[in-house]
Nucleic acid binder design. Structure first.
Lengths: 107, 107
DNA sequence: CAGGAATATTCCTGTCAAGGAATATTGTTA
DNA sequence: TAACAATATTCCTTGACAGGAATATTCCTG
């Protein structure tokens, strides 16, 4: 059963952008805030939500806290999607069948 | 750019369950409500959100309205995930490399 | 057209999330 | 330890959203 907390966390545009930025590697709070034109407190608050959703982890480095993307929730999404992929693949298959049928009628 | 409306719609547990139920085929409002032990108005309201998010479509059939899952938003999620899949595949690759290394050291 | 079944909408209320501003905390360095 | 940089937290206000109850709408059938 898919955890809705992942969806809640990603439903907020700023947090989705955070995830996309962190795809390229860990980053400090300040850098994230600057990159997204956020005030630092808002950045911290959003990162907290991502942290509680398990979408990021944090590592203290000197004065800074580097946030790194965690892939587990995304893997879970991927697994959840698995059951739905065949729904649109079926359509392709049907289209495929249809095209084959047309082709054989052409002969 | 991934549409956050999809995530918002799926962030609500009842709506997620609706999507999962509709995976097996279209269903009327009443049947959905019964299946999820919801009152009819709540079912209609949640279906409206799913409709506006493009996650379902509706077809009138006599007195009933049958809701059917639309896969486009899910396909978009799948596409969005594509950029992240390599993140956990890389790990597997690294583990794979590591295991190969161990094995060759064993020789 | 009346009546009834299925569905949608409205109104109300309580809860929760988000931004702004201020402040607290933690860690570093002189 | 004092001062400073980086980050976290709190308080406040506002707006969105969910459930409950009542009602409106739509469509079919006699």
């Amino acid at each position: 059963m898919m955890d809705t907390m992942t969806f809640s966390a990603l439903a907020e545009p700023t947090r989705l952008r955070m995830v996309e930025i962190l795809k390229d590697g860990p980053m400090s709070v300040g850098d994230i805030a600057e990159r997204l034109a956020l005030r630092q407190p808002q950045a911290s608050k959003h990162l907290r939500v991502l942290l509680e959703a398990g979408l990021v982890e944090v590592e203290a480095a000197a004065n800074r806290r580097n946030y790194r993307l965690r892939t587990e929730p995304l893997e879970a999404m991927d697994t959840w999607l698995e059951a739905y992929r065949k729904l649109w693949n079926e359509r392709f298959d049907n289209l495929d069948d249809y095209l084959r049928q047309l082709q054989s009628e052409d002969k």
